[in-house]
Design a protein around this nucleic acid. Sequence first.
DNA 1: CTGAAAGCGCTTACAG
DNA 2: CTGAAAGCGCTTACAG
Lengths: 347, 347
Amino acid sequence: MSVTIKEVARRAGVSISTVSRVMAGEARVRPENRRKVESIVKEMDYSPNSTAQSLVSHAANAIGLLLTEAEAERANHPFGMELIRGAVTRANRSGFDLFIGSGSGERAGQQVMSRLVRGKRVDGAIVLAGRHKEAVIDWMRTNGAPFVLIGRSEQEGVPSVDIDNEAAGYEAAYHLIRLGHKRIGFVGLATERDAVECRFRGYKRALRDNGLSWRSGWILEEELLRDGGDRAMAYLTSLLQRPTALVAADDMTALSVIRALHNLELRVPADMAVVGFDNTPLAELSVPPLSSIDTGAYHLGYWAADRLLRMLRQKKNGAEGPERLVVPHKLVVRESSMPVRGPISPA
Amino acid sequence: MSVTIKEVARRAGVSISTVSRVMAGEARVRPENRRKVESIVKEMDYSPNSTAQSLVSHAANAIGLLLTEAEAERANHPFGMELIRGAVTRANRSGFDLFIGSGSGERAGQQVMSRLVRGKRVDGAIVLAGRHKEAVIDWMRTNGAPFVLIGRSEQEGVPSVDIDNEAAGYEAAYHLIRLGHKRIGFVGLATERDAVECRFRGYKRALRDNGLSWRSGWILEEELLRDGGDRAMAYLTSLLQRPTALVAADDMTALSVIRALHNLELRVPADMAVVGFDNTPLAELSVPPLSSIDTGAYHLGYWAADRLLRMLRQKKNGAEGPERLVVPHKLVVRESSMPVRGPISPA
DNA sequence: CTGAAAGCGCTTACAG
DNA sequence: CTGAAAGCGCTTACAG
């Protein structure tokens, strides 16, 4: 076995209490003893057993991050990875470690969380839930574990961190409107994805506010793009009154769309302007480079962890400060929605 | 506080030993008592404190996954996320939890690992090291913590899981050779990335084996592509004897290349065929869809965890079975390297 | 400033 | 089959 506090105490000729105090950086230790202990600690390469520390201090010094299956499997991976990086960075900064829980299946996620939270392995958790009525949210609430949601909740009193997806959707559409587009569609609608639904609402509001209308034919569900989207785009572009610009639910969707348009020999942005969401690394590698709303995944992870840590420090489960923390997003304009010479509408 | 074993024992009218035995699923418990305990456990919603369990059983039932900074920050994110999913899935299957450690900076990674391993928070770790001489490898060895490396090691006796990057590089190049290409370049060379160096070696061997040669002008370092690669590709394609096909170090590099070629008004694959590595979700969304070697990130994560768990079960630190486990890769051919009508060399 | 002691919530021989 | 007891490696009043 490895070195224990007992061994260090013996070698340093002090009690384990003193060693503990030195490790904790407490002031009330005679300098002489402190030096002695420190040198032995170094010599023996002692490192306190954090399990024992957790047991006695009732603090795990760890937080969990639960990715619900839908989120984890979505091809949207760059987003998830950035989010993890943000969360782990913030957690480490406070000496906390980060557990990843990823449920394959509704129940598995909860089981893992259950083990983590109820087994006191973590002091709290960040939950990335795609849907505001995700069952795990209720579970966390009734289990009384401090947690922060990334996303929206329809319930009150749930501390959450999110971007304002509706405003982002509005901004994407408004950007196209200012470019002169009059017929703007929305592709990749997925009613089971909260963020997307909000973006869609923002899109509609922007059109309405600017006296524009949309047709149901301009709205494409996510399922229609599953096969690559060639058929869906062929349909969309064959409409008599076809849109000249599209807001896509996320970058992956936008890239599918661009590829499908390319297969149809339509040019982006000349024949169709496109804007995506998330500003993943792919956006700038796309041909043409894709305009996208940067949702700052790293920041979401970072601030969710920050907020959770704050709650833990105050031993509060509920939200302090605003229930909902909104992380700013920003539109990054690239070629896919650049103004084009000549008239916009080719239809 | 939450329910403890003591409380359950009291309510069930048995000793804590009995409760512990029931929870552990031991046979030697009178059915009557078992039922009684089980019902109380359910009623009180008791869940053992895993911290206490770990302390007494000397097993954390958790493993760590260390992403060195270079790996975590590489835009190569889809890869990392898949890898995490694989590892967490396998770990959970055995009732283990997964810690993520991500060092920003050489030292930070080691600090986090140190806390995790030496603090007995994890029983072992998976290390994703981009370079075989990553300092953390030595650290893990001297600290005696069981670990599995994802990648290569120049040292002996380090259990590792990896794909055969050299064979993969060979395969990518050979695929192009069979298509009739005689002048094949390699872009994105990064000597500090082990995997890439191996792919490069495989590429060279394939050319050599088939009586082809390469010129230094056909080999582009990663740095040259940092600005998007337009300049580098302009140079490459302006060569008198310019390559007709390129092996790219990874998908992100390949996408940069494709975009740069597009800007130069060169067609892929007609003017230049391209093959990438990793087969990230982007590959099929590219225009044209990108041929890529699927490196199975999910499998790498899964098998690394599997192997580590096996080592833990046997309480061995060294490799059992082959030191190096090779996960198969496979070439996925898409349009970027499809045969083209007519003569291949336009130079 | 320091040490002996109690205790965190469990598991596991050991003796019945 | 079952319980009392020791012990895992720490922290933290408490009394000096």
